[in-house]
Design a protein around this nucleic acid. Structure first.
Lengths: 240, 240
DNA sequence: TGTACATCAGTGAACGCGCGTTCACTGATGTAC
DNA sequence: TGTACATCAGTGAACGCGCGTTCACTGATGTAC
């Protein structure tokens, strides 16, 4: 094998594709982004998202892609941005029904891990690889900035934590933003280690997240808040 | 730029290198592994560890490397194995002075994160990328198996946790191996998210680990064990 | 209603690159006699 | 002590590959007149 890239099945002819009609060229853009995500999922890294692989999936020649993206970097960035947007929506939707801050936080954490494990390719590119930061002077104006997105996401969590503190559910030790960052790190750990080490005999992930919250709940929460959050408290621990 | 690989500074002539003497050929093997690690550190992924880049660093032509490694995969695997061995030693050494199980655990966690952040390239390859598992039938006999290494490392942590339970320091809820796995996930999260997202404004990592243990200590430990572990307990929280 | 034409979607060939790997080789050096 | 030779470290050229990107182009189609 001359290179480490994915096999690509060059024998398989691309799906027959009809040329788009006059004003509909923009639809190729979406198809290209879809293909980029497919490659992220199937392969393990952003390196597999190549112009040529995408063009083969879409059923078009490589130069056609440059009609919609300046270069490979812009394409990958756009794909990340779209994936991130869906990720955000998924989590916000999961937390939408939460009636109090603690359930909000737990719902977000569970949704986070679920999305990551359901979309390992995208999660890997978004959170586990060194960003495709162009950072090329002024190019970064309109381009996707993961750090900005992370901060935005953390602010949601921060709001929930601040709310919990305000309601007397959580001990007010230190800035809530730092606690949010710590929670993010932990949840990311649970998700990313499973994605990176799929062969390890992991326990059920829902149980792991539950265990984490059981421990965290006792550590973070006030006595009054615990029974709200912890699913099945061990009676011997609480009564004795 | 035609490819996404590292620039490589082709103008720089390799360091003048004297040919090794007759029985000393094995020294090149070590130099090659050193160079592989250098590339892991400088670049961000295992993809940058190329035969040609290594041969340039070492000051030898590419075919010489095949004298010591069957192919690129074997080389990367050997480099991982060596790095993993140093990682293990570093952590065991950090925990060597611990006099009780809880300090053992905390020392291991701190050492884990420190090593990861001091050796981000190696940590990335070992824990954040889908393994270079050859898994080619019987080739896996003598080759490096990350899963086996992970389990071995966790068993150290498991022993410490079991010891803590035996001494009445930790509530015996569930198998300690699962708790060890959870702790590993969390610590990995703290380390890996910082490696993957270096541009994010992270708080001081020692503080983060301290915060985590403060929360975990309250959640996991028995009342009797807390003051042993928690560095600066907030008196209002404990006394009131 | 018919036609010329600008626009637009997409093509095909080519470029130079770095890659892993193979092959036949060269020349120094330790060792057996 | 001298010499022939097997061994060993390392070379140089070449292979075929997939990659990102460029260039000049083709042919369908909507639209202005």
């Amino acid at each position: 094998m001359p290179t480490t890239a994915a096999p690509l099945d060059t024998d398989v002819k691309p799906a027959a594709r009809v040329r788009l009609r006059r004003g509909e060229g923009d639809r190729l853009r979406e198809e290209v982004l879809d293909a980029a995500e497919t490659l992220m999922v199937d392969s393990s890294s952003a390196d597999a998202v190549s112009i040529r692989a995408i063009s083969q999936i879409v059923g078009v020649t490589a130069p056609s892609i440059y009609r919609h993206f300046a270069d490979r970097n812009a394409l990958v960035l756009a794909a990340c941005e779209r994936a991130y947007s869906r990720f955000d929506q998924y989590i916000d939707k999961a937390a939408a029904d939460a009636t109090d801050p603690l359930h909000d936080i737990k719902s977000r954490a569970l949704a986070y891990v679920r999305w990551a494990l359901d979309n390992p390719g995208q999660y890997r590119v978004l959170f586990m690889l060194p960003g495709t930061h162009s950072h090329d002077e002024e190019t970064a104006n309109d381009s996707f900035d993961p750090v900005k997105s992370h901060i935005q996401g953390l602010q949601q969590l921060d709001r929930a934590l601040a709310g919990a503190v305000a309601q007397g559910l959580i001990h007010p030790s230190g800035p809530t933003m730092e606690l949010a960052t710590l929670l993010w790190s932990m949840v990311h750990g649970i998700a990313s280690i499973r994605i990176a080490q799929p062969d390890f005999p992991w326990p059920d992930v829902e149980k792991t997240v539950g265990d984490m919250f059981q421990i965290l709940a006792i550590g973070m929460c006030t006595e009054a808040a615990r029974e709200r959050l912890v699913a099945k408290p061990t009676k011997s621990r609480r009564k004795k």
